[in-house]
């Protein structure tokens, strides 16, 4: 077993003729939070989808040193990989509880009661709404449900795509607290965020993505102090004034 839970080597993804991700490599040590920051359209979501197997890619993705090859999404889920996508992708006409149950699909019904207990302990709001249809939830509750559903599959590596997207500042704080809590519980996390400041605060290590490539990387605290990063991602309006 290597010390990196996930190792991505020279990964490229193309939509038709356009290469959205070009020869990207990254590695996530066990129990770490690694973040990828970058502008809209830089290829961050594409990268996550490729790691998850939702998009076909060239290059290598290895989980615990084991190459995933061209294995299907469900095989990656079974290996403990889990993606909370930018658009949440909930089952909108099904109840909150059914959404959570399906999160435990890989274990079958027997894993449901224990999983529900854990998730409800972390997100008491979801327990209050367990009979409600997922489509009627507010934005923050949707994100909690998406994360709760992911936790039901007991992931070893959780990938969060823009978890603060469209959420009120207070809920964003709550979500980030949960992210740090999960890290304490031993879950490795790959975090993609447009809210670069928050992401760099919680992460151990960070990559900067521009036009499909990594242009910088380093310990999160170092990047947060880097002049170029501050200019491009932490200041308002690109810092021309």
């Amino acid at each position: 077993m290597s010390d990196a839970i996930l190792k991505v080597s020279n990964l490229s993804v193309a939509y038709g003729r356009v290469e959205a991700v070009r020869g990207v490599s990254l590695s996530i040590p066990h129990g770490n939070i690694v973040t990828v920051i970058g502008a809209n359209g830089a290829g961050k979501t594409t990268l996550m989808n490729a790691i998850m197997g939702v998009l076909p890619s060239v290059g290598e993705v290895a989980l615990d040193g084991k190459p995933m090859g061209r294995s299907l999404v469900e095989a990656r889920v079974n290996n403990g990989l889990c993606l909370v996508p930018e658009k949440r992708e909930l089952f909108s006409t099904m109840s909150v509880e059914d959404n959570l149950r399906l999160g435990a699909y890989r274990f079958g019904s027997s894993a449901v009661p224990g999983g529900l207990r854990d998730v409800f302990a972390r997100f008491p709001r979801l327990e209050e709404r367990r009979k409600q249809e997922a489509g009627t939830l507010s934005g923050g509750e949707r994100q909690m449900l998406a994360m709760g559903r992911a936790l039901m599959s007991r992931p070893r590596l959780l990938m969060l795509d823009e978890p603060s997207l469209g959420l009120a500042p207070l809920i964003v704080k709550e979500i980030f607290h949960i992210v740090t809590d999960l890290r304490k519980a031993g879950v490795s996390i790959l975090l993609v965020e447009q809210n670069a400041r928050a992401a760099l605060q919680v992460a151990d290590y960070a990559y900067v993505m521009e036009l499909g490539e990594f242009t910088m990387s380093g310990p999160a605290a170092e990047l947060a102090a880097d002049k170029r990063v501050i200019e491009s991602y932490l200041g308002l309006g690109g810092g021309r004034h």
């Binding site: 500042p169 964003v172 980030f176 809210n195 670069a196 400041r197 928050a198 605060q201 308002l236």
Partner: peptide, 8 residues
């Protein structure tokens, strides 16, 4: 604060 706000 709202657009770029930090965690703490």
């Amino acid at each position: 604060e709202a657009y770029l706000g930090g965690v703490e």
